[in-house]
Write a protein that binds this DNA or RNA. Structure first.
Length: 477
RNA sequence: GACCCCUUCGUCUAGAGGCCUAGGACACUACCCUUUCACGGUAGGAACACGGGUUCGAAUCCCGUAGGGGUCGCCA
């Protein structure tokens, strides 16, 4: 493993204006893995300088999502807004050094400027009209912003760990606002100051920030601070190829928890989105820390594929501990049933988990498939079950009832033997007997193995359910 | 509009000049297993955006074209 000359410090810096979305989660994951790979630090900073849009609920949701994915950050969370005075101090320093200046241009003026630039096919940037003007020319009573004097000639090349060498001409840069008219810092100022003060060595973020990097670098250079290493990772796109948004059903990372996904499945999926390690598909946390390198991240955006996530989730559910799955699925079942499960029922659920989990791709499906165990008699029958109970099923069930009732013990092997013997005696395939039984016992045409169902349900409940459909078949319709 | 980035099966990717008649995974199809559904196994269809170079040889290097994406706020 390579060791960095300086300790690696990465950071995840979401703005709390909504939940932790799936793209943000991936950015956090990459930052986390990169730091852990090098034995460095992974910091969390909440960019709450937009007082209008930042909410405590969003902060809670982000932290909740990070914890769910087990992305443990080092040290305390940094809240950007709390550092506003420090940001302003940097702006004033730049002003004092002549590297920044007051600008009195009004919003209307700027709007007009942009419209004109666009019409003339020029970059839509601030034209620097107050750059060299004397503040004495300022309109009376107008509140100025502070702008950075950005370089106007030459070019900057960033050696991005993901994007490679990217060069932008300084003519493309404009004098960005550092401090707003109300004295609060802009994002551009805040990130640069915070990253510096926090000792961030590697800025790993979405490539929607690639252009910002050049402007931020101008500020860093004005301050004479060390430049961080950048890695701009491609965004996740929806199935239609456009930037992921709510429309694509890509919600907060914790919405995937609601949808019944396991965090390790989401993590594995996110990791493989835009990154690969040979033909490896199933990758543990330990392996990913060991294998992860940022330069192996692809440069092209990738699309979100729920099917693959489901497949991965099915895999991780099969591997998951039965007790853990039981705890996760129990509340879902209770919600459906609108009652609590007894201790005995919980135990039964757990002992059936081995059979149940191989058939489900999500916890939602798992809960659904386990529901029949806890229904009270007579259990509801779905369309598939009704079909299986058409004649001659009732007659077969009568025979089955007797055979099962006579079984020497209520164990899988004994019941298996009894039912097979019956099928043979009737000259039928096992399926001809098992399917009606399944319908009677589970109310559906799909379920775990019929003998596991019988054992799980127990003798009394099983025979009772068979009896229910026998009687309703004779009396009904 | 300007600038920046991207382009291998439907999707995620392997591939860093000959190992590629392009590999794996998801999805799909067929078959096997089988009491149903899954799981598992086997097989199959499916891609180097296009056009020029460079080279003995290009998915891999260069240049164009087309398409897609991103950014251009006193938002972050």
């Amino acid at each position: 493993m390579g060791s960095s000359p300086t300790p690696v410090v990465t950071r995840f810096a979401p703005s709390p204006t909504g939940f932790l979305h799936i793209g943000g989660a991936r950015t956090a994951l990459f930052n986390y893995l990169f730091a852990r790979h090098f034995g460095g630090k992974f910091l969390l900073r909440i960019e709450d300088t937009d007082r209008e849009r930042s909410t405590q609920a969003a902060i809670d949701a982000i932290i909740d999502g990070m914890k769910w994915l087990d992305l443990e950050w080092d040290g305390e969370i940094t809240y950007q807004f709390a550092r506003a005075e420090r940001h302003a101090e940097v702006a004033r320093q730049l002003l004092a050094e002549g590297k920044a200046y007051y600008c009195y241009a009004t919003p209307e003026e700027l709007e007009e400027m942009r419209a004109k630039a666009r019409a003339e096919g020029r970059p839509m940037k601030y034209d620097g009209r107050w750059r060299d003007r004397d503040p004495s020319e300022a309109p009376a009573g107008a509140k100025p912003v502070i702008r950075l004097k950005a370089p106007q000639t030459g070019e900057t090349t960033i050696n991005d760990l993901v994007q490679g060498e990217v060069t932008v001409s300084h003519e493309q840069l404009d004098d960005m606002v550092l401090l707003r008219a109300d004295g609060t810092p802009t994002y551009m100022l805040a990130v640069v100051v915070d990253d510096h003060d926090m000792g961030v060595t590697h800025v790993i973020r979405g490539d929607d920030h690639l252009n910002n990097a050049f402007r931020q670098l101008a500020l860093i250079r004005a301050m004479g601070w060390p430049e961080p290493i950048y890695a701009h990772i491609p965004l996740i796109h929806g199935a239609d190829g456009a930037k992921l948004s709510k429309r694509h059903g890509a919600l907060g990372v914790t919405d995937y928890r609601e949808m019944g996904f396991l965090p390790e499945a989401v993590e594995n999926y996110l990791l493989r989105l835009g990154w690969g390690y040979g033909d490896e598909e199933i990758i543990s946390r330990q392996q990913s820390v060991e294998w992860f390198t940022i330069d192996a991240v692809g440069r092209s955006p990738s699309r979100f594929d729920l099917k693959k996530l489901e497949h991965l989730n099915g895999h991780y559910m099969r591997e998951a501990d039965d007790a853990r799955l039981t705890d996760l699925v129990k509340p879902r079942i209770e919600a459906q049933l609108e009652r609590a499960l007894t201790e005995a029922e919980r135990a039964m659920l757990q002992s059936s988990m081995k059979e149940l989990k191989v058939r489900a791709k999500t916890l939602v499906e798992l809960a659904q498939s386990a529901l029949f165990f806890f229904r009270s008699r007579p259990i509801p029958l779905d369309a598939g079950a009704m079909k299986l109970l058409q004649p001659p099923a009732p007659d077969i069930l009568r025979e089955a009832y007797a055979a099962l009732a006579d079984a020497p013990e209520w164990k899988s092997e004994a019941l298996d033997a009894a039912v097979r013997a019956l099928a043979e005696r009737l000259g039928l395939g096992l399926g001809k007997v098992a399917q009606p039984l399944r319908a009677a016992l589970t109310g559906s045409n799909t379920s775990p193995g019929i003998f596991d169902v019988l054992v799980g349900l127990g003798r009394e409940e099983s025979l009772g359910r068979i009896e229910d459909v026998m009687t309703s078949a004779t009396s009904g319709q």
